[in-house]
Design a protein around this nucleic acid. Structure first.
Lengths: 220, 220
DNA sequence: TAAAAGTACGAACGATCGTACGTTTAACTC
DNA sequence: GAGTTAAACGTACGATCGTTCGTACTTTTA
């Protein structure tokens, strides 16, 4: 598909780690992997706007100028597509928010970097509908299944990362002792709320995030 | 419709203010108003689970044992149904969370009461899918239109209420001076995050809320 | 009493949904 | 070179979607 696609894959940067997945020697599978990536990359945008549930094979096919059954060949079922889209979103999120923050020293510096990159990610927006996770966690949190599990797993990992940096900050004495789990929960909550506020036109959402985080990291 | 409905309206308490709307003398319109209420009451449950977008006239009709076109008669369009469902959700939320908290004295007492009733509302759950607003604000925050406007308006009112009680608490010296707008934003953020956490099985979500609010209201 | 208004229904519409199936073409394996 | 595998397509399916329309019935209005 990828070579024939009338709209041959946007290539909007961020290709990042450049995963080629299995069977790198086989040019058929490689072509398939590229097609999958092009499809999921666009699907992430749609899903941040309309949610994973708002995705439809027909819409995706029309947007990309390919056939609906071509998508079906690559993902078999709708749920498989959802899981692949989540995987791509995880990679984009890691590349845009997590990886760049690893340059900063562990502790408060990295935590502030994470928050700043998150703000950029939610404001830019890399995803036109705002935070992919905020849009879809709320959709799927009441629908048991592998999609919810994957979303929950990513979210849990993100909060754990925040907690880890907080723990580092406490251990090194950068901030006074605090409940790192609770503080991580708070920061994540404020980020999610800021994403919503941004969608609704609040121009000061980023400022609110910075004030809350600043307050939490204040050595007291 | 209401008199003929095979499943004649669940009547699960909370009828509350018992609105009869317009033309109380006209028994035709009264019948319509009752049918509208029965329909929106059930739709609120569905929408807290699947989102307003997950609502379908066919599903609603089947669940309630009425005809699809009967619903169409009463709401004309799907968007009108959405707006009516939001109105019902507002009433249910007010009756379950806001009104009972008005018994408490303005300030920290009322704020704690609001939070406790909110926890009960999210845990019970009055709405099987959890917080109606959390589920739908995330869905519609990127889709301009009257539905988003109504959801945003309700949310704004809720945060303003929190801020009002905080202001009262500050003015009366119950708590040290703080940024009431920011604190209200924070509390709302934590409540929304707790709702998600509850859906994902976190047994300590309520505890986290209480600890954060307790910290904020700590006179320092 | 006749006309008008409102509720509720059944039937049908065009559209779109996810999926299944068979075919064609390219690439790899034996 | 023969056979297999994978991508991509076109077609078709059953289901459901929101909406339109005509009709029956009840209640209010004139």
């Amino acid at each position: 598909m990828s070579e024939r696609m009338r709209r041959p894959a946007p290539d909007n940067g961020l290709r990042a780690t450049g995963r080629t997945d299995q069977a790198v020697g086989d040019r058929r599978r490689l072509r398939g992997a590229e097609s999958r990536q092009a499809i999921t990359r666009h699907a992430v945008d749609l899903a941040s706007l309309e949610g994973l549930n708002g995705l439809s094979l027909g819409r995706l096919a029309t947007d990309l100028g390919i056939s609906k059954s071509g998508i079906q060949t690559l993902f078999r079922t709708r749920e498989n597509l959802h899981l692949a889209v989540i995987e791509t979103a995880e990679r984009l999120f890691a590349d845009a928010v997590v990886l760049p923050a690893l340059d900063a020293a562990a502790g408060t510096a990295r935590l502030r970097a994470l928050v700043e990159h998150w703000i950029g990610y939610a404001e830019a927006p890399l995803f036109p509908g705002g935070c992919f996770w905020a849009a879809n966690l709320a959709d799927f949190d009441s629908r048991p299944g592998p999609v919810r599990d994957r979303l929950a797993h990513q979210h849990q990992g993100w909060v754990a990362l925040l907690a880890e940096e907080l723990r580092q900050a406490v251990d090194s004495g950068e901030v006074a002792d605090l409940d790192v789990e609770l503080a991580a929960f708070q920061i994540d909550a404020v980020l999610m709320a800021a994403n919503t506020a941004l969608r609704l036109g609040d121009r000061d959402a980023a400022g609110k995030v910075r004030r809350v985080v600043g307050e939490l990291l204040r050595s007291r």
